[in-house]
Simulated assay, not measured.
Amino acid sequence: MEDESLLEAFWAVTRRLRHRTRVALEPWNISPSQSRALGVLMEHGEMRLSALAEHLRIAPRSATEVVDDLQARDLVERRPDPADRRATLVALTAHGTATGRTIRQARAAEGERLFAELSAADRAELARILRKLRD
């Protein structure tokens, strides 16, 4: 029973953070998957669509839809891959980089607001526990 209540509490916090993130993204009219794609490209630079799909853990067809939407908004562009003429790379535009930075700041601020409810010691302990479970 104790494990179940811990699991439910964890999922409730996850849902709360996801909701707050969605609200934080509203000014950009961007979906969480589009935001994640921008973040991956900011962190790793231009890449093939298949690599982006792997990073996002989604099907290549779904990644194509995400990139199509981002490209229509001038946040990413497709470029020929100089190593393989048949392949295409996805890269951030200047507007995409600026938007990605702003979104990253908004998401970080939401996380800070959520975790501000904890003392510094509780935050450090939670970070330690989450890193242990992640690794």
Results as ranks from 00 to 15, higher is better:
Ser50Arg: 15
Ser50Met: 05
Ala53Met: 01
Ala53Lys: 02
His55Met: 06
Ile58Trp: 08
Ala59Gln: 15
Pro60Thr: 04
Pro60Trp: 00
Ala63Gly: 11
Thr64Glu: 15
Val66Thr: 15
Val67Trp: 02
Asp68Tyr: 04
Asp69Lys: 13
Leu70Ala: 00
Gln71His: 13
Gln71Glu: 15
Leu75Arg: 13
Val76Leu: 06
Arg78Asn: 01
Pro80Gln: 04
Pro80Thr: 03
Pro80Asn: 05
Asp81Thr: 12
Asp81Phe: 10
Pro82Ala: 01
Asp84Trp: 07
Asp84Gln: 10
Asp84Lys: 10
Arg85Ala: 13
Thr88Phe: 11
Leu89Phe: 05
Thr93Ser: 09
Ala94Lys: 15
Ala98Cys: 06
Thr99Pro: 11
Thr99Lys: 08
Thr99Cys: 12
Ile103Cys: 00
Ile103Met: 02
Ile103Ser: 00
Ile103Gly: 02
Gln105Thr: 09
Gln105Cys: 00
Gln105Glu: 13
Arg107Gly: 05
Gly111Ala: 05
Gly111Met: 07
Glu112Lys: 13
Glu112Gln: 14
Leu114Thr: 12
Phe115Gly: 05
Glu117Trp: 01
Ser119Tyr: 07
Ala120Asp: 11
Ala121Pro: 03
Ala121Asp: 14
Ala121Lys: 12
Arg123Phe: 07
Arg123Pro: 08
Glu125Ser: 07
Glu125Lys: 03
Arg128Cys: 04
Arg128Thr: 10
Ile129Ala: 12
Ile129Glu: 08
Ile129Lys: 10
